Measured scan of single mutants.
Amino acid sequence: SHFELRVGTITLHFDNISEELAEELEKLAKNGVHADEIRRWWEEWLK
């Protein structure tokens, strides 16, 4: 499923992401983690 995450002024787009993972990314964003860090985390997870 597709997921969009708003982090400050940036909107990150994720394809084929589980609800659980989407929730984890939302938690990171709410805790003030920068969009670049979240994207890096996601790319690492995909490997």
Rank of each mutant, 00 (worst) to 15 (best):
K27N: 11
V33P: 04
L46V: 12
I10S: 05
I10H: 05
D15N: 11
R40H: 09
N31I: 10
A29Q: 03
E19G: 10
R6I: 14
L28Q: 08
K30L: 12
K30S: 13
E43A: 15
H2Q: 06
L25F: 06
E20W: 09
E20T: 11
R6G: 03
A35Y: 07
T9Y: 06
N16H: 06
G8Q: 02
V33A: 14
E20H: 09
E19I: 12
L5A: 01
A35E: 07
N16M: 06
V7R: 00
K47R: 14
F14C: 03
S1C: 09
T11E: 02
E19R: 12
D36W: 08
E44H: 14
E4Q: 05
F3S: 00
V7T: 03
S18L: 03
H2T: 04
R40D: 05
V33E: 07
L46S: 12
V33D: 04
I10E: 13
W41K: 12
K27T: 11
G32T: 06
R40M: 11
H34D: 12
A22Q: 15
L5H: 00
N31K: 12
E37L: 10
T11R: 03
F14I: 04
A29E: 03
R39L: 15
L5W: 02
I10T: 10
I10D: 07
R6D: 04
E19S: 12
K47D: 05
I17N: 01
R6Y: 03
E43V: 14
S18M: 03
L25I: 07
G32I: 06
R40N: 08
I17P: 03
V7W: 05
K27W: 11
S18K: 03
F14V: 02
L46H: 09
L46M: 13
W45S: 06
F14A: 01
H34Y: 06
E20N: 07
E44Y: 15
W42E: 01
H34Q: 13
H2I: 07
I38T: 02
D15W: 15
L25M: 07
K30G: 07
D36Y: 06
I38E: 01
R6V: 14
I10G: 03
H13M: 09
L25R: 00
S18R: 04
L5G: 01
D36E: 10
E20K: 11
N31H: 14
L28H: 08
V33S: 11
R6F: 04
E24P: 01
L12R: 00
N16A: 04
G32N: 08
L46F: 10
I17K: 00
E23G: 13
S1A: 08
A29M: 05
A29G: 03
I38N: 01
L46P: 04
L46E: 07
L25A: 04
L5D: 01
E4T: 02
L28E: 01
R39G: 05
N16T: 04
F14N: 00
L21V: 13
L5Q: 01
R39K: 10
G32M: 08
H13E: 05
I10Y: 03
W45V: 07
K27D: 08
V33N: 08
E26K: 14
S1G: 14
A35V: 13
N31C: 08
A29C: 04
E44S: 14
H34K: 12
V7H: 01
W41L: 11
N16Y: 08
H13K: 09
R39W: 15
F14W: 05
L25N: 00
W45I: 06
E4L: 06
K27C: 10
I17Q: 01
E43Q: 15
E20M: 06
I17W: 03
E37T: 09
T11F: 05
K27S: 10
I10P: 00
W41S: 05
H2P: 04
D36R: 07
E24F: 14
R40Q: 08
E23T: 12
R39N: 07
I38G: 01
A29N: 04
L21F: 06
I17H: 01
R39Q: 11
R6S: 12
L46C: 10
R40P: 02
N16D: 07
W41D: 01
T11G: 01
W42C: 07
V7K: 00
D15F: 15
T9H: 12
E20L: 06
A22P: 01
A22K: 15
L25H: 00
R6A: 09
T11Q: 02
L12K: 00
H34R: 10
T9M: 10
W42K: 02
E24S: 10
D36L: 13
G32Y: 06
F14G: 01
L12I: 05
L21H: 05
L21M: 12
W41V: 14
H13W: 10
D15L: 11
W41R: 13
A29K: 06
E4Y: 06
S1E: 08
W45L: 06
N31F: 11
A35Q: 06
A22W: 09
K30E: 10
S18T: 13
E23H: 15
W45C: 06
T9C: 13
I10W: 02
E44K: 12
K47I: 11
E37W: 12
